[in-house]
Design a protein around this nucleic acid. Structure first.
Length: 691
RNA sequence: GGCGGUGUAGCUCAGUUGGUUAGAGCAGCGGAAUCAUAAUCCGCUUGUCGGGGGUUCGAAUCCCUCCACCGCUACCA
């Protein structure tokens, strides 16, 4: 068999947070693939690193009063500890904040410059004057310029879906300081990706580098279809620089500007390889400029864009090999719901490991993962039953029910007639191998378990426990157990990319290290058998519950921490001085006031009134109230119609100059232009009482 | 809105070069066994294959249409 040279990467974990079970889908997927390739005898390197640059790390370091270097060093240690806990094995773990990466970024940059792909443009960006930093979109909130929904993120509106630039927001607020940012113009460098359009069209659409749905997606969103009536769409320029301050590498020929983190992050794959090569007497070009070497990236669907357009473009410009394949997977949901930090379903890797064994999750993910981009669901009831019944009940059970009968004798000296069981399982190996190769782990697991389902009935029929009672049948007993243990050993080899622990223990039991796939094709004979020890623990529901509980507590503690940080919002004391607190009231007093959610169904100016608007409020159904409100200076009638407010519904009606007013709408502020109506949160209904 | 994806037993999913009564595991029910971590084995049960229409001798599979759900919609790390 010719040995392949395969270089594998997983997405680089961001140094701004802990690893959770969602990340592990990818890392376990990658690790299984790498272990599989090594088991097949190929030379396979897993090159990995932390992604360390960007605004988020910078802000965090400031908040915690320490250097970025300290923050990322801590994250690096934590990440590697978690990976070790989950038996994820890589050949090098670097950091994008390394000398190697800086040097390679410079080289790639120069080649992109030389290719004439870089141009300068001025960009308007919001600047937080208190923090002294430009604000990434996600650090700005404000009113949507389109539908006027308040408190929307900087880049698009969650209400109307409008996309806009943060600079277009009405009343933008920096989420870092709470202050109002100002618009500043800065020079940015862009890469004209469109120049590479033809190349990218070709690379993404042919050659099987991508899953078909990914190729379709790229065409639909970015590249366009040159053969359609609309033709190809131009690719937008990629904003590749960030002005100071920024945590990253300064661009050598553009002082005061830094490479955007997504420029240097993928180059981290190269840098990590460089580190490995330096240690092992190899060269970078032997892996990245060598047609005989394959390059495989494993990523989540959220970062498709960067890995399938920019990254190939960068590699192409710099004269490196292009990825052989980009393997893209879906997200993890927990019990059918999106993972949520606040609810505590974003289980941290370390929390999981406090309560449960890594093998269980590795197997569960393997049994769910296919080659497509579907999300996979972590359902704990299924998790418990699957791991227990497949691994303990079927696979390990084969050894635990037969090993002790041959502890004295060892395995038979030649492999007995098993009715073709071993042979047919051996020939199933090809299909299982293909499933691993194609990342169809769920198929591989299904095929393997089918084999286990044939092995157990064999033991059942052979009844070794009865053979043991008859001294004349010693040989038969040994033969039956030899078969059972060989079928077991075969399964373990097939499972070994997923379950490294089990492989090791099986090796000890049978006195033979299991290191190569081909061992599954030949039975083991004559080997001594060690005393059987538990190879895998059953998952108990209480352990799962304990983990869930622990995670919930962590989530609560974290949100409490965020609240304690609220002193970063330094609000003025003036309002309390202007209007001091009134006397205490009882709940009964409060309940006398009937506050209700109401919808403004009509609003109009009142002839002759300086301050008043006439509002018609609906409490649902036919319940209408007419209210005169002193908010003319602050609101236009048009902005009011349709919105929900809170009103005092049981206020005694009062005859005013312009008509009868049947209530009050609640608002804060001193008056005049500074009046702010209360708005109930999304979901409340007109007529609902406010308690 | 556009694009992509998904929709098969209570649950998780197989099943497309169109072909006999649609499959597996888990769950459920009934039995057996007692070597094994209450593990195992045998048997049984469950389906308008999202709806409708079309092509065909024949459709879960091909075409059209509708519905539902999910994701993406780039200068976000």
């Amino acid at each position: 068999m010719n040995q392949r040279k395969i270089l594998v990467t997983a997405a680089l974990p961001y140094a701004n947070g802990p690893i959770h079970l969602g990340h592990l889908v990818e890392y376990i997927q990658t690790d299984i693939w790498v272990r599989y390739q090594k088991l097949r005898g190929h030379q396979c390197l897993f090159m990995w690193a932390d992604d360390t640059h960007g605004t988020a790390i910078m802000i965090r370091a400031r908040k915690e009063g320490r250097s970025e270097e300290e923050v990322i060093a801590e994250a690096n240690a934590e990440h590697q500890r978690d990976f070790a806990g989950f038996q994820i094995q890589y050949d090098n773990y670097g950091s994008t904040h390394s000398d190697e990466n800086k040097k390679l970024c410079g080289e790639v940059w120069q080649s992109i410059r030389d290719a004439g792909l870089v141009k300068e443009k001025d960009v308007d960006q919001l600047f937080d004057t208190e923090q002294g930093t430009f604000l990434a979109d996600r650090f700005v909130r404000g009113t949507c310029p389109e539908c006027k929904a308040e408190d929307q993120p900087g880049d698009n509106c969650s209400k109307c879906g409008n996309t806009h630039s943060p600079a277009e927001l009405i009343d933008p607020v920096s989420t870092l300081s709470g202050s109002t940012p100002e618009i500043r113009t800065a020079k940015h460098l862009f890469i004209e990706l469109e120049q590479l359009h033809e190349f990218l069209e070709d690379w993404t659409q042919t050659g099987d580098h991508l899953q078909p749905e990914v190729a379709n997606y790229l065409r639909g969103h970015f590249l366009g279809d040159p053969e359609s009536t609309e033709g190809a769409k131009p690719l937008r320029d990629w904003d590749i620089s960030r002005p100071s301050p920024y945590f990253g590498f300064e661009i050598p020929d553009c002082p005061g500007n830094f490479w955007y983190v997504w420029f240097d992050a993928p180059i981290g794959y190269l840098a990590s390889t460089q580190q490995w090569c330096d240690r092992n007497g190899d060269t970078l070009d032997n892996w990245w400029r060598n047609d005989a070497a394959e390059i495989h990236h494993f990523i989540g669907k959220d970062i498709t864009y960067f890995h399938t357009l920019f990254w190939p473009g960068m590699l192409k410009s710099a004269g490196y090999s292009l990825p052989t394949k980009v393997h893209i997977h879906g997200f993890l949901t927990v019990n059918g719901e999106k993972m949520s930090k606040s609810v505590g379903t974003a289980f941290k890797a370390s929390t999981y490991l406090d309560h449960l064994p890594p093998a269980a999750l590795r197997y569960y993910y393997a049994s769910k993962l296919g080659s497509r981009l579907d999300d996979i669901d972590l359902n704990f009831d299924e998790f418990i039953s699957k791991v227990n019944s497949d691994l303990v009940g079927k696979v390990v059970n084969l050894a635990s029910r037969s090993a002790k009968f041959v502890k004295e004798t060892g395995l038979s000296s030649s492999y007995p007639d098993d009715g073709g069981l071993f042979e047919s399982a051996a020939s199933a190996g090809n299909e299982i191998a293909r499933a691993y190769e194609n990342c169809d782990y769920n198929k591989a697991m299904r095929l393997i378990l089918e084999l286990a389902d044939k092995a157990n009935p064999f033991v059942e029929n052979a009844e070794p426990w009865n053979l043991k009672k008859d001294p004349a049948k010693t040989q038969e007993l040994q033969d039956v157990c030899t078969i059972a243990l060989n079928l077991f050993r075969q399964l373990v080899i097939y499972l070994s990319p997923v379950l490294p622990d089990l492989v090791e223990k099986t090796g000890e039991l049978l006195n033979e290290p299991l290191t190569h796939w081909d061992q599954s094709q030949t039975p083991l004979t004559g080997s001594p058998v060690a005393k059987f020890k538990h190879m895998m623990k059953r998952i108990e529901e209480k352990d799962v519950r304990a983990m869930e509980e622990a995670s919930k507590i962590e989530a609560e503690q974290e949100s409490a921490l965020v609240e304690n940080n609220s002193d970063q919002f330094s609000d003025s004391e003036q309002p309390m001085i202007d209007e001091p607190m009134t006397d205490e009231c009882t709940i009964e007093d409060f309940m006398k006031v009937d506050l209700r959610v109401a919808r403004i169904v009509n609003a109009e100016h009142v002839e002759g009134a300086r301050k008043l608007l006439k509002l018609t409020l609906s409490l649902g159904g036919e319940h209408r109230k007419q209210v005169f409100a002193g908010i003319k200076a602050a609101y236009e009638p048009d902005q009011l119609v349709g919105r929900l407010v809170v009103m005092v519904a049981n206020l005694k009606p009062r005859q005013m100059k312009f008509g009868l007013s049947e209530g009050m709408v609640c608002a804060s502020g001193p008056g005049g232009e500074e009046v702010f109506l209360l708005t109930p949160d999304e979901g409340s209904k007109p007529g609902q009482r406010v308690h």
